[in-house]
């Protein structure tokens, strides 16, 4: 019994310590962000561009493929299920709600976590193990300002952009299927989509992309810096980064949806 309380107490304390570390990390990020401009931020611009290239541009084919398939599936399901109770008029609305609001940001977030999040954690973790962080600090370069902030901005910008591309490709997929099934023209399809779309659909989608990007990049860089000495910690932290990011993503998604609808 005593052992059970021991382990429970240790688990809770670890969680609290982790949460405090994460809060301290966020504070440190804000402090570095609003500090007087230094040379490391300018050099960080290149890191930011590279991050956008890696996370955004290079992920575009995967995003396009997933989005086209999802759009096609969504439209096929809508066209087969909705006419049963006379709901054909809601095909556009369902497509917008499912893709633009919900699945678009979530699936883009998953792809970014799997592709870039783990890479960021592994990269920073390996730098810690090889004492490159210490080397940067010895040269007077703030590792947070040089390594973390450009990645946070890069991942966030990429996720917002990928989210928009995802929506566009998914709607193209939906159009291709409806063209084959219903012989709908592009102008009619676009008109139906625009009629079904409200500005909150766009703002919710962008907001979700923005928040998911910040959360994923914060968690993944934090897990990278959490590596202490051994290279065996790197995959462990990468795994924790993925689990933590997905959990944060779902919680944030639920909160945003809850705020919007209530």
């Amino acid at each position: 019994m005593a052992r059970y309380f021991d382990s429970l107490g240790r688990w809770v304390l670890n969680r609290i310590e982790n949460s405090l570390d994460f809060c301290a990390y966020i504070t440190r990020i804000f402090r570095s962000l609003f500090r007087k401009k230094g040379a490391s931020l300018e050099s960080g611009i290149t890191v930011l561009f590279k991050q956008v290239l890696f996370t955004g541009v290079q992920a575009l084919p995967v995003i396009a493929l997933v989005a086209l398939a999802l759009g096609a599936i969504a439209i096929v399901q809508s066209l087969t299920q909705l006419p049963r109770f006379g709901g054909e008029a809601f095909v556009g609305k369902i497509l917008i709600t499912v893709i633009v609001r919900e699945l678009g940001p979530i699936l883009t977030g998953f792809i970014v976590i799997g592709r870039s999040g783990t890479a960021i954690t592994t990269e920073i973790g390996n730098m810690v193990v090889q004492h490159e962080i210490e080397a940067l600090e010895s040269m007077g370069i703030d590792p947070i300002r040089y390594l973390a902030i450009p990645r946070i901005f890069g991942v966030t910008a990429s996720l917002v952009a990928l989210n928009i591309y995802f929506d566009v490709f998914a709607l193209i997929g939906g159009f291709l299927v409806s063209k084959m099934v219903l012989f709908t023209s592009l102008s009619i399809f676009l008109r139906q989509l625009i009629a079904a779309m409200v500005i909150s659909d766009v703002t919710v989608s962008i907001l979700k992309g923005l928040i998911f990007g910040i959360l994923i990049s914060l968690i993944c860089t934090f897990r990278g810096f959490a590596v202490r000495v051994s290279s065996t910690e790197v995959p462990q932290q990468a795994s924790k980064a993925v689990v933590g990011s997905i959990t944060a993503l779902f919680i944030a998604d639920g909160i945003i949806t809850f705020i919007y609808y209530f």
């Binding site: 561009f49 956008v52 290239l53 955004g56 910008a157 917002v160 952009a161």
Partner: peptide
Amino acid sequence: VGVFLTLV
């Protein structure tokens, strides 16, 4: 990167 973001 510029084209990627501008298009969005």
